[in-house]
Amino acid sequence: MDHGMHGMTMDLPPFTLGNGLHWSTQPFFLAACLVGLALYGSALARLLRRGDAWPVGRSVSFVLGVLLVLLTMCTRLNDYGMVMFSVHMVQHMIISMLAPLLLLLGAPVTLALRALPVAGRGRTGPREVLLAFLHSRFLRVVTHPGFTIPVFIASLYGLYFTPLFDSLMGSAVGHAAMMVHFLLVGLVFFWPIMGIDPGPHRPGHVMRMLELFAGMPFHAFFGIALMMASGPMVDAYKHPPASLGIEALSDQTAAGGIAWAFSEVPSVIVLLALLFQWYRSEQRQARRADRQADRDGDKELAEYNAYLASLQARGN
């Protein structure tokens, strides 16, 4: 890590939650969060002015997701994350596993498609660009489990256990770029599994559960590898500033415990969301079947009864 980075973080007092939650702006994430909230809010306002309904839960979920990113990246948690492996790991887990779930449950793409006006014949507006992106080959590839699961796993092993991590940790920009990567990986991993928005890859509910559980054991193993290590495994955190009063190996062990425990939290949330979505889709199908029965006087049941009667007549 360069001396400039050390100078910025050397005077940090020992970590407490109170110290960690002091405001400390990270310009890129602050701007991105404010733009995200403004776009979502204006789209929602447009829908409501038109008299359309939008589930309150979705809006709450999206706002919580953005606030979670702000809390993780625009407080002193981000400063501590530069010098403490355990705090960095909390950031990583929130940004890659909790924030994406909340943002996806906010259904921002669906909201945009409903709020954006349709361009005139032969014209291309923002809505048409968004639809083209949703149907693009690029999105088909990056949301396919053959891509998302390996990238999800490589974000742990390929980053932390190679020199790439130390070079990114050499600057605040590198650290922020790593967090952007974690957020994007989380979004593309969870979108096909439990996102509400339309997407190119949307398997059945059982397949989605299998996709979820395909990635999680690797997460747990990564945490266990950090906890079991007999020496510091990441150069960036080998020499924590004396003012923190921590020892590198015990901090790494804590980071491993956080990674291991955290892999269970999103699994439970996603599983509950999936079961709820499954239940809702079954209900919708049942309602459709009931409406069809009302329209045709339950033709299917009448045909089945006639079939039973013909069997009985043949038996006699």
Rank of each mutant, 00 (worst) to 15 (best):
D251E: 14
A261Y: 06
R284G: 06
Y304L: 12
E303G: 08
W278S: 04
G257Y: 05
L271G: 15
Y307S: 11
R288K: 09
H239A: 13
A302H: 15
L311F: 14
H239E: 11
A309F: 02
E247H: 09
K238Y: 10
E282G: 04
K299T: 10
Q252W: 06
A302R: 14
A255I: 01
R314M: 02
S243R: 02
N305E: 15
A302E: 10
I269V: 03
A242W: 01
E264F: 04
Q283H: 10
S310G: 06
G257H: 06
E300S: 13
D251F: 07
D298Q: 11
W278Y: 15
A286I: 03
L311K: 12
S250I: 09
A286K: 02
Y237S: 02
S263E: 14
S250V: 10
H239W: 04
D294P: 00
L301Y: 13
G257S: 11
P266A: 03
G315E: 09
A302N: 12
L274C: 04
E264V: 07
L244H: 07
S267H: 04
W278G: 00
L272W: 06
L249F: 06
G315L: 13
G256I: 01
A306E: 14
Q283M: 08
A289M: 02
R288A: 14
D251G: 06
K299P: 01
S267F: 05
L274V: 01
P241D: 03
S250C: 11
G256N: 05
S281A: 15
L272V: 03
Q292Y: 10
P266T: 08
Q277S: 14
E282D: 14
P240R: 10
P241S: 10
P240L: 12
K299I: 01
E247R: 07
I258T: 05
P241L: 13
A259K: 01
V268W: 00
A293C: 10
I258K: 04
D251V: 07
D290R: 09
A254C: 08
A236K: 13
L275R: 03
A286L: 08
T253I: 13
R314Q: 08
S310E: 12
H239N: 15
Q312E: 14
W278A: 01
I269M: 00
K238A: 14
P266W: 03
A302V: 11
Y279V: 00
L272S: 04
R288H: 08
I269F: 00
A289G: 01
A255E: 02
A309T: 05
L308K: 15
A309R: 11
W278C: 00
S310H: 06
A242G: 02
L308A: 12
N305L: 06
F262L: 02
Y304H: 15
R284H: 08
D251C: 09
